[in-house]
Amino acid sequence: MKILVPLKRVADPDNANKVKIPAGGATIDTTGLEWKPNPFDEYALEAALRLTENGASPKARQGEVVVVSFGPKDMEPTLRSALATGADRAIRVDAKDDQLDGALVARALKALIEKEKPDYVLMGKQAVDGDSNQVGQMLAQLLGWPQATFAATIQEEAGALLVGREVDGGVLTLRVKGPAIVTVDLRIVAPTSVFSKSTARTFKYNDGVRFAPLPAIMAAKKKPLAEVKLSELTSDTALRVEYVKFEPPPGRQAGVKVKDVGDLVHRLKNDAKVL
């Protein structure tokens, strides 16, 4: 099985409350925040690795995992880290962050995917900077492929994937045959969320994504990392969505500490009038 994993780098999501918006609101300033892989894309990579191995012997890759990212050269460490955790090769589409929007990334990925011909594309359901939740679905439409979004579980069975999707009100299960797009949700990295056809159904992974041991980090320096120009993938580089202004959310003042339950009930009834 060949899986392609698009991976975006984002400003450290655990410190997203430290993003700055300069006076005038023309930009969002993330200076001082470390670049991190978008967590959902990291989870997609982990799911791709799980689908191309026997969980009990993860060193032998049964298939190929290709990671793709859009960005300037200084984002290559993000791709090297993905190679160290087990991806076979990487592609960087040379682009500046502010020259991209979701629709453009989808158009460029379409061209790349038609060349790479993966069986599945696994990606995060959204990037946690723009929170747009769109590229996977757009890509499916452009390619004429089926999609299974917000996957919490994936089981490989008889030439298809059984995907449990987290939707409003419960879990919706789809059976999807490749080539197809799967976007993943948080719980895809739980111990029993993903089973390849060769992983025993009794096997339990460690919770979360795997970390690369030092020898793998060294070996990753020798894995192939190709560069592609954005213009080689699409001639239509116009942005569909343009941001005109940013602003911080209205501040919420800390209220009062109440002394006990009686005090709380009194205030809910008499001050907030919600009782």
Partner: peptide
């Protein structure tokens, strides 16, 4: 039409317009 939407886990609001 200018749309306001939350970004960065609600730590910023972006105002965007669509050109299509």
């Amino acid at each position: 039409l200018v749309y306001k939407r939350p970004m960065f886990a609600g730590n910023a609001f972006g105002y965007c317009s669509v050109s299509t």
